[in-house]
Design a protein around this nucleic acid. Structure first.
Length: 338
DNA sequence: TCTGGGGTCCTAGGACCC
DNA sequence: TCTGGGGTCCTAGGACCC
């Protein structure tokens, strides 16, 4: 029996969940993000397919989305609810039995299974998720995680697609390197400077030639090579953070300090729930208009004590320029790697 | 297009030590 | 006196992903 990797990805997850609560929104352009107010500083978390047809994309400022699609329904993100629904989806996948589940986020998971009919398994997965949660998903099938993940994109919405070594070059060869999982805008631009624009061109490159600045693994990416076994060992968190973008930039020192204290307390509450002490504390500041930097410190002794975390965060904060207007503040606790 | 929030991993330079 | 080389930790930042 062969081992297959399946990648399950829910269709327009946040929008779909909201439409279940408000069926009258079905078929309409729905945009979920921030507080649901396009006048505020926030971005699109998920847009429904009708909204996407009007040019709305994830990560786009709500303001822009409203300009492109003025009649869209804007809804606030209800993260607690999405976490709950996501848990139902993942439980459904685990209950399918003889397979390994690796959760990749609210709306995504890899499955590893021994089967000679991965398409049949994919349909079983879709049926089970739909029956239990009334949500549709696409399923990608691959001979490794990278190919399964990329296959899902061709299966959307609600379909199934298989991508393996056999059809890799045919399906992916002419696509831009940016289409690969792990190549973003910056790396794609760097590759383009070297004349490497398509997946095929990247795959044909001598890995050693790329090694100096970029690393030879990008060539492997271009060839569709990646991890082959799905892992269900739960990942131990490396850090916990909280951050806030202010609707109006903060200009007063006292105000900034008060916000850092509030964030540090939230982080302290989070890590107390985790039951792990922080070994390092980092403070992130985004100055207006949009320049971000981070400063951090290693604590003498790891601690979850809110007062100590607060004090550490305030101490790190002093290393920033106090005169510049602040757009965002963040506090992060890092755990010891054990 | 005036750009969220929560994460992960990697790199690289400097400090410090032997 | 002006000089090696290796190893590790700390810190900042880049890049990417959902």
């Amino acid at each position: 029996v062969a081992y297959w990797v399946l990648h399950v990805d829910l269709d327009q997850f946040l929008a779909a969940v909201e439409i279940l609560r408000r069926p009258e929104l079905a078929g309409l352009p729905v945009v979920v993000g921030g507080a649901g107010d396009p006048a505020q500083r926030a971005v699109v978390a998920t847009a429904s397919y009708p909204a996407r047809e009007r040019g709305v994309r994830s990560g786009m400022p709500l303001r822009t989305a409203a300009r492109r699609c003025p009649d869209a329904v804007f809804l606030p993100a209800d993260n607690a609810h999405y976490t709950e629904v996501s848990a139902q989806v993942m439980a459904t996948l685990r209950e399918l039995g003889d397979l390994v589940v690796e959760v990749m986020g609210w709306d995504e998971a890899f499955l590893g299974a021994d089967t000679d009919d991965p398409e049949a398994l994919a349909r079983t997965v879709q049926r089970a998720v739909l029956d239990r949660t009334r949500l549709h998903c696409a399923v990608g099938i691959g001979d490794n995680l990278l190919r399964a993940k990329l296959a899902t994109g061709f299966g959307k919405p609600a379909g199934v697609f298989r991508l393996t070594a056999a059809n890799w070059a045919e399906v992916m060869g002419d696509r831009p390197t940016r289409a690969l999982w792990g190549i973003g805008a910056r790396t794609a631009a760097t590759l383009a400077e070297r004349g490497l624009r398509t997946v095929r061109e990247l795959a044909a490159t001598d890995p050693a030639a790329l090694a100096a600045e970029l690393g030879p693994w990008y060539v492997q990416l271009g060839r569709g090579i990646g991890r082959t076994r799905v892992q269900d060992t739960p990942r131990v968190a490396r850090s916990r953070s909280r951050e806030t973008t202010f609707q109006d930039n903060l200009t007063g020192c006292d105000e900034v300090r008060a916000e850092v204290v509030a964030l540090a307390r939230r982080v302290a509450t989070d890590i107390a729930a985790d039951g792990r002490p922080a070994a390092r504390v980092a403070v992130k500041v985004r100055f207006a208009p949009f320049s971000t930097s981070t400063r951090s410190t290693t604590l003498d002794v790891a601690t979850a004590d809110p007062a100590r975390l607060e004090a550490a965060a305030l101490q790190v904060l002093e290393r920033f320029d106090p005169t510049r207007p602040v757009r965002l503040l963040g506090v992060r606790a890092e755990f010891d790697r054990t």
